[in-house]
Design a protein around this nucleic acid. Structure first.
Lengths: 117, 117
DNA sequence: ATAATAGTTTAGCAATGACTTGACTATTGA
DNA sequence: TCAATAGTCAAGTCATTGCTAAACTATTAT
């Protein structure tokens, strides 16, 4: 129930080149907001907004001390989509296996690979 | 060159619950356009548009015979994002390992885990 | 031949999303 | 104390996107 919401937010967050670049940068190590903003041709405020999106979906964490906020990757954040992809693959695999079994067994009911709803 | 474009399109495609649901359905086996549309509370045309997006980014393939178009997952389609996630994780790992090595070696220069740009 | 099925295409609308600007707060260095 | 640095917040703008409705094509069933 939590997860279905979370996976959606995570995919949406990563569907944006800037945010993906920020995640890429942060997987090399923590950085301040200004550090993160420097490479991009946009206002600091825009980058802050991207960081909020990334933090809300759990991809990064951050804490502020003094006037500088340090952002770092949350290692668990990518888990959701990794799991989702893995599950799709495993279900595809399972289906191929069933199909292969049927093809190897030339008797029984051989037909119709497509399961209509 | 192709890949950087492709990863973007793939993430954008999956950042949409309906399209993700379609991919989930198709990882169980092929289906026609109408089959795919049935569970959703939206017009057939809308689903067709989603399918176009999914096909353009290589997540699904489809061929038409007669008046029915059969859609199936392209097993390679998820590869892009799987690789991207895996690479983030590996880079994070690598960094943790370096950090652990430094902490285990109590002499040498100990400090400063954050690499400023 | 007619009608029903299956899908395609286009134009348009409403909501969302990415960005900017400008004003503002809090911390740190001179 | 004054000024620069680092970040935050709130509108507002502009482009993109998800959807519908409607008109259309092609195939299959009666």
């Amino acid at each position: 129930m939590l997860n279905l919401h979370a996976i959606d937010a995570t995919f949406r967050a990563l569907a944006e080149p800037t945010r993906r670049a920020i995640v890429e940068r942060l997987s090399l190590g923590p950085a301040s907001v200004s550090d993160l903003a420097r490479p991009f041709d946009m206002s600091l405020a825009a980058v802050v907004q991207h960081l909020q999106v990334l933090e809300e979906c759990g991809l990064i964490r951050s804490e502020k001390q003094g006037r500088v906020r340090t952002c770092r990757i949350d290692p668990a954040g990518l888990g959701g989509i990794a799991d989702w992809v893995a599950e799709r693959r495993s279900l595809m695999e399972r289906r191929f296996d069933r199909l292969a079994a049927i093809l190897a067994e030339p008797d029984e009911t051989p037909p119709d690979e497509t399961p209509q709803t």
